[in-house]
Each structure stands twice: as structure tokens, then as C-alpha cells.
Design a protein around this nucleic acid. Structure first.
Lengths: 342, 342
DNA sequence: TTGTATGCGTTATCAT
DNA sequence: ATGATAACGCATACAA
């Protein structure tokens, strides 16, 4: 019942007294092989419990039909949704997705990419780690002539396509919304602006202030190394030591917004009456908190699908010519109770 | 600067006028090769931008150092934490994790396992999909002589080790806790009892009722095909059509508990004063809701680490003898505001 | 329609 | 300490 020794095409060829090449061709439904032989081979293969060694095949073809997806974390709604989008698009094309997480650590990112390349993935779709400065390990993907696509968190590397949302626009929309709710002293919790996305969101915040003639207050900008619950809590504690308290908090990440929410509640500060609050990313929990948190939808499913499409284009396109494609998606403001005053 | 043609050990051997075997050995730090040669080869390899082809290596060795991890979803706190635990344990041993999600679909599960086997993973650690009945595709892993370890959601297959928590005990503890808060009419939202975990949790609920001489009320048990927010909402709507309303709800999953919470709030029912509520799994959001939701911690990080340990034991152990190991972890009751009456 | 021969990149065995 | 060669499983160019 259980065959422990794996059967190869040679075993089949021996049993059927045909050549291994014939077996190989039959298995691949090569029309040059007679239907009769094809069926016989198939049947025998099944009987002998034959399973193709994809490794050997990939080795000889130089193509695995695997694509690597590298993300900081898999348990963020945003990233897991992007992955889902990629899978949905790629799977019908026979591509399989290998998921790797870096835990925001360059060293791990480097290692993961090295392994993915060594294991011969056909391409890599990634969102860079927060700590990534030097990009040599990323360029290596290009050097090996393989498609590389960034999504969300990109780096400026010539020849690399990317799919992002318009973070500037998203942050502008949030800030504008807060202003329209009557807020004038809007604190901003910023993620690491070494990442484009956070730099852009900050720009959006500033631009909206300017557009509505609100004074920029240096003390209202809080730099977080990580947008975590703890950092949000910490930020509020500090902000409330100021003489002039803010009447709104815009966090560039949902987790910090959540931490801020919790601390505001501990301080018995009414949301949104006294302070309006917004996050960014539209994590699932923003809907469930009390009050629910305003946020920005990054359309991750769509982002994943488009990233996958770009990959498919690149892999089908001529190998010599690399087209750099930059897709920028429109963010969606999700206004919830934490900032709804009417 | 960028070498598009990948260099092999032959390129190095040619340049250095040594044999490919020597290069291979040098690269692997074989002590039989002189230090001088080893260093020369290393240096040249770097210069020529050589990268090992792990695929070729795996092919010839019959060992990839990859292990497949198959889960229903990656964006559930429980699963992503287990994966993290597995990674942490396996990574120092040179193993790399390939993550696959089935989206609770047997067909996908089948496909994923087939691909993982074809791509020659050294073993598989998995949590079966809800819809999995027939297990032939899972047995195939054993047939190929590769270690297979279940975690959380297991199937009864001889020779397969598993790491689970004591779901019975966890559910018993929750029910007992609710009873001690003064609840007497405890509704139960059950996941698909075709899965061991849900069957066990149900048993725990029943056993606690019995232990405290509470009558079992058939109408209080609600069967959910999926433990989603919607199903929790739906359950509460139906339960509140009964003449005798429950004074507690114990959901076997956190998402359904969240849905129940939302619906209860819409109905202006005070939690925990009028109705106590508990979930199961300790999803991150259970801490953030208003009120926070009592739940059961499945110690996923530990579970992942142990699953990985079992894998390592099996792969290092003799190939002929398969030991079936069943590890059962202790669940942790996390009492939160949704059920704290004092 | 089928068979023969070769190569993919690496490691291992057996020489030297 | 190093070299020559076979082998891993499969697909394909070339022959027949």
C-alpha cells in the first residue's frame, strides 16, 4: 500500500518497455505520443504511485513556477490581504507563492532573499523592512535577471516596478477631514520617515495644515520608531504634558492609534467630542474598538492583484528589456466614530 | 557590475585551474582542502559573484532543508503566532519555512501538499482545513517517508504526531468561570464539530454544566458552520427570539464572540451585568474591544516551537521507526471585562 | 511515433 | 590535498 521508494520515469519506462523519454513526453501530454501510449503511461504511473519530482524538473528547466513574497509580518491585515490578492491572481497561471516574513529585520530580509534566489524562485514581490538602508541584497534579484516588484514600501531602485497607494493623498484627506470637524491643533504620530510611505504621509499632513492656514506646531509631531500600541500610549502621555493640548490625533499607523485611544480613555477624554482620532491602514480592529477608529483603506487585495499582474507582464515580456512600471492606487478614507462629530 | 549569466563552480574551477570538485569542497569548508585553496576559492567566488544553486544541491542531496507549513489562514493571530514559533525553533537548525494557506478549502489543501511534496520539502507541519474529510492526500506525506506533524487541528492518522491544547479543559474552565459569575443559562456557539477541537470544546461545555448541575438546554446551542463575526451576530439575533434569554454566551471562536458582542450592544444589553460573554483563541482584538472579551489562550508560540521540535526529532530519528508523539498543552483562561462581574 | 544522448549544478565515491 | 567521474530525475535536440 505504501511505497516508500519514490518511483521515477525510469521505473515506468522499464515496466512498460519504452524509453524514459517517451514516458516523460506522455506524462506531459505531448501530442507526438500516441494517445494509446499516453493513456497507458498515465495509468501505469498512477498504479505505481508515481509523482513528478518538481525539483528535478525545475532544476533542468531553470524555472520553478514559484514566486517569493517577502513581507515584514504576515499577521497584519494589510499584508495578509495583499498576499491573498497575489495568490488569487497568480494561482490560475500555475504559479505558487512562497511567503517569507522579515520581522522588520534587514538581516532576516537579506537571508530570506538569498534563500529564495538560491531556491530559484522565478521572481520576487516584496515590501521592504523598516530597517533596510543598503539595498544590495535586493539588487541581487535584478542581477540574476529576475523580476522584482515592490508593493507599499518601496525603495528607489532603477528598473524595479512598484505598486503603492498615494500616501500623500490619504494623509491629506485625513487631516482635511479632521479640520472640517473643527480641529485646529492636530497632533501627528509619525512612523519612521526613512520609509517613503511615512515620509509621504507626513507631507500630506503638512500640506493640509498649510492649505487650511493652520499653524504647524513642532511639539505636536511625535516620532515613533515603531507604530505599536505602546508607542501610541506613550505619545499621548507626552502630548498631554504640553500646555496646549491637541484637539485631534492623526496616527500614521493603526496600532499606535489604538494605543492612543486606550490612553485617552484612561484619561477620561471624550472621543470625538474633546479629541478626534484617526489611524492609517484600516486594520480589522479599527471597526471593533469603542469608538471605532477612522482610518485609511489601502485596498490591499487590489494592490496584491496588480503586483501579481505586473509580475506576469515582466516574466512574459522580453528578458532583455526591463520596463519600470509604477502603479499608484487611490486610498480610501474610512470615517468612523472616533472622528465623527455630527 | 551586474552579471546576468549565473556563475557555477565550473566557472570558478576554470579560472583557478583546479577541478570543480575542489571548488565544491572548498566552498563547503572541507578540511581536506588546504586553507590556502579554500581562501582563494572563496575570494574568487565572491569576485565572480557566485551564488550557490540550492536547487541543484537539494536535487542531488535529496534534501531541501525546507519544511512546509500548511494552515487555513495566515491572518489569524493564532496561526501566525504558531508559524512564528516554528520559525524561531527551526531557523537555527538551517531549516526554512514555506508557508501555505488553504483558506479552509480541501481542494486547495490537496494542491498545496502536492506542490510541497513535489518540491521536496523535508517534512510538513500542518493544521487541517475545516472541510477536510478524506485524508489520502495527507497520508501521501507519510508514504513518501517524510515527517508529518499536526498542530491544533488534527486528524486520526496512525504514525502522525500532533501538538494540541486540551480543548476540553479550556472549554470546561470557561464554562465553570461563567457559572461562578452567577450565570445559569449559558448559550454555546459551536464551530463545526467535525473538527476535533470543536467537538472537544463542546464536550467541555457539557461536562461543566453537568458538574454544576445546570440543565442542558438544547435551544442554547447554536451550530455555526463558520465562526465569523456575522455568524455570531446571527446567533444572538436568534437566541433573543427565545422566551427564556440566556444570561451568558460562550462562543467557541473569538470572531463569533465579537459578532455577538456587537449585536448585544446594538440591543443595549449590558455586558457583563445582563449577559456574560467569552470567546476562545485569544485573538489580539479581544483585548481591545469594549468591553474586552474573555478568551482562552492556546499558547500558539509554544505550540509552534514544540511542533518544530517534534519535527526535528523525527527527521533526526531512524527513518524506519516512526514514533507517534502526542503533546497536549495546557490552555490559559484569560478573564476580561466581558465576564467579570465583581 | 519513439529512442538515444546530453545537460542542468552539485556532491560523493573512488582514485591518485 | 586534489582530480575524474558518476549520479540525482527530468526534458529536449537530434536521430531513426
Amino acid at each position: 500500500m505504501s511505497h516508500n521508494t519514490k518511483t521515477t520515469i525510469y521505473d515506468i519506462s522499464e515496466k512498460l518497455k519504452v524509453s524514459a523519454a517517451t514516458v516523460s513526453r506522455a506524462l506531459n501530454d505531448n501530442p507526438k505520443i500516441s494517445i494509446k501510449t499516453r493513456e497507458l503511461v498515465r495509468k501505469t504511473a498512477k498504479e505505481m504511485n508515481y509523482h513528478q519530482n518538481r525539483l528535478a524538473q525545475a532544476f533542468q528547466k531553470g524555472k520553478t513556477n514559484n514566486v517569493g513574497v517577502v513581507v515584514p509580518f504576515i499577521n497584519r491585515n494589510f499584508f495578509s490581504s495583499v498576499i491573498r490578492g497575489i495568490e488569487e491572481k497568480l494561482s490560475p497561471h500555475g504559479y505558487h507563492v512562497i511567503i517569507c516574513q522579515t520581522h522588520e529585520d534587514v538581516k532576516t530580509e537579506k537571508e530570506q532573499i538569498k534563500i529564495l534566489l538560491g531556491t530559484q524562485v522565478d521572481g520576487i514581490i516584496m515590501s521592504v523592512s523598516k530597517t533596510t538602508q543598503n539595498t544590495d541584497h535586493i539588487k541581487e534579484v535584478l542581477d540574476q535577471g529576475k523580476p522584482l516588484i515592490f508593493f507599499d514600501r518601496r525603495k528607489d531602485i532603477p528598473g524595479v516596478s512598484s505598486v503603492t497607494i498615494n500616501d500623500f493623498e490619504g494623509a491629506f484627506a485625513v487631516t482635511e477631514h479632521l479640520i472640517k470637524q473643527g480641529c485646529e491643533n492636530i497632533a501627528y504620530l509619525s512612523g519612521d520617515r526613512g520609509l517613503d510611505i511615512y515620509a509621504e504621509r507626513y507631507r500630506g499632513y503638512l500640506a493640509a495644515l498649510k492649505a487650511y492656514n493652520l499653524a504647524f506646531e513642532k511639539d505636536y509631531v511625535f516620532d515613533l520608531s515603531n507604530t505599536t500600541i505602546e508607542s501610541g500610549t506613550f505619545a499621548v502621555k507626552n502630548l498631554w504634558n504640553l500646555n496646549k493640548k491637541p484637539d485631534a490625533i492623526f496616527s500614521s499607523g493603526d496600532y499606535a492609534a489604538l494605543g492612543a485611544l486606550q490612553e485617552l480613555k484612561r484619561k477620561n477624554i471624550k472621543i470625538p467630542q474633546e479629541v478626534c482620532l484617526s489611524g492609517f491602514s484600516n486594520e480589522a480592529f479599527t471597526e471593533y474598538t469603542e469608538p471605532s477608529i477612522t482610518s485609511v483603506d489601502q485596498t490591499p487585495l487590489l494592490m496584491g492583484k496588480i503586483a501579481a499582474e505586473v509580475f506576469l507582464e515582466q516574466i512574459q515580456g522580453s528578458q532583455t528589456l526591463t520596463i519600470e512600471k509604477k502603479v499608484v492606487l487611490k486610498p480610501g478614507l474610512r470615517i468612523r466614530n472616533s472622528s465623527k462629530r455630527k
